[in-house]
Nucleic acid binder design. Structure first.
Lengths: 216, 216
DNA sequence: TTGTCTATTGACCAATTGTTCAATGTATGT
DNA sequence: ACATACATTGAACAATTGGTCAATAGACAA
């Protein structure tokens, strides 16, 4: 007995959110049409009515994952930091904290990343998402290099942005697999040390604002 | 008609190598008992005779993957570098090159990493492998901090080692998904710039040996 | 030879999967 | 009221999966 109808886009959204929860909990392997349908309290036939192939559902979910994973939103307090290096480091720390607190999303991303080696569509999407994420950090990196060219020789803005991404994702990778043994705070401090603080002249102001902007 | 026998350990090895090739090509999803058996030219029943459960096969393969992925072997030329920072950077560059040239193994590792969030046995193995890999870099990191404490304030050996791991794996992650768009050489140069070269005093000797040790 | 042990095979099973489709309900227009 | 369009359901199907098991072939000892 077919149930009630629902507006077009609502159903797709409903199915996608169900797919997101399922994939978050059981991985892409566990993302079956029936599991999604059950989660959304729909028949599995209906899921395949709105997404003609399972592949389409998987790809649509990828879009959603990438949108929420690679959205770099820096708080105003960070942007107001006077020193370019402080801004750069603060943005990195903020992202490290954010992603470390969303392990499921992180895991899902890496599953898609691995999938990308066999599915060209997935690869393209992940690739461009990583590129734009890097681009977001390049703005900060350019400021750093402009005001601090002496310390970083041979460092390009694009390269420095890529390093920022590595530091963030490397932190998540190591922290998630071993939450007890991996010392996140030591990692953050070391990352900051390697990239360099704002120096002695801003010691009194910078770090304090930083601590307020990034709750531990 | 049952075929010929084979020495005990030979069969397990044979099956494991077959499993490795299958998983390398088609991922852990594609690692089916029948696919492995077919690859090893055996019956699928025999695979389950030597590995009572599929889980056991997957875990045994993980050991093999971790052994070959996280084995840090630094060339003698790197160890002979006079400057601690040069050794550190050279070891990192060497690993970046090595792992970037083995994308399949890299992908397989991340699949296991993601699997670790649901399988505690896998998680434990991956976790300890990452720990020992970090420990290998900590030796270099300690030397760096001992000779260069001024530049790296608040940086701990463990933290610096973790950053090395992040730089290496971050490079592989970004380079593999977008081989064309990601500038590896710029990344390497930037990483070296951030960590700092040996400075002006060793410019004549260090870098040249480095270039010889790490073929581009 | 005879017998025992075990490696090996392939048939078989139950469960799960993606996908199709006829049937049926709901909404909307005329 | 009637018809048309379409969202929705669940049965059904073929393919694939991990796993079991009886039958059998090889190796080796007595």
């Amino acid at each position: 007995m077919p149930g009630q109808k629902a507006p077009e886009e609502t159903r797709r959204e409903q199915i996608l959110t169900a797919a997101h929860t399922v994939a978050s909990r059981h991985g892409i392997d566990g993302l079956t049409v029936r599991a999604v349908a059950s989660r959304a309290k729909l028949s599995h036939g209906l899921v395949l009515f709105h997404f003609k192939r399972k592949d389409e559902l998987v790809t649509a979910l990828l879009d959603r994952v990438l949108e929420t994973t690679f959205l770099l939103t820096v708080s105003e307090q960070v942007l107001e930091l006077p020193d370019a290096r402080d801004r750069f480091v603060a943005a990195i720390r903020q992202e490290m904290d954010r992603l470390s607190q969303e392990p499921r999303r992180m895991r899902l991303f890496f599953e898609y990343w691995a999938l990308g080696s066999r599915h060209s569509r997935v690869r393209t999407k992940v690739s461009t998402a990583l590129s734009s994420y890097r681009a977001a950090f390049r703005t900060f990196a350019e400021d750093v290099l402009r005001t601090d060219a002496s310390r970083f020789s041979d460092v390009t803005p694009e390269g420095l942005a890529a390093i920022a991404v590595s530091l963030i994702y490397g932190c998540a990778v190591q922290a998630m697999i071993d939450p007890a043994g991996f010392d996140i705070s030591a990692y953050r401090a070391s990352a900051q040390g390697v990239l360099g603080h704002s120096g002695t002249r801003a010691t009194k102001r910078g770090p304090r604002v930083l601590a307020a902007a990034i709750p531990a």
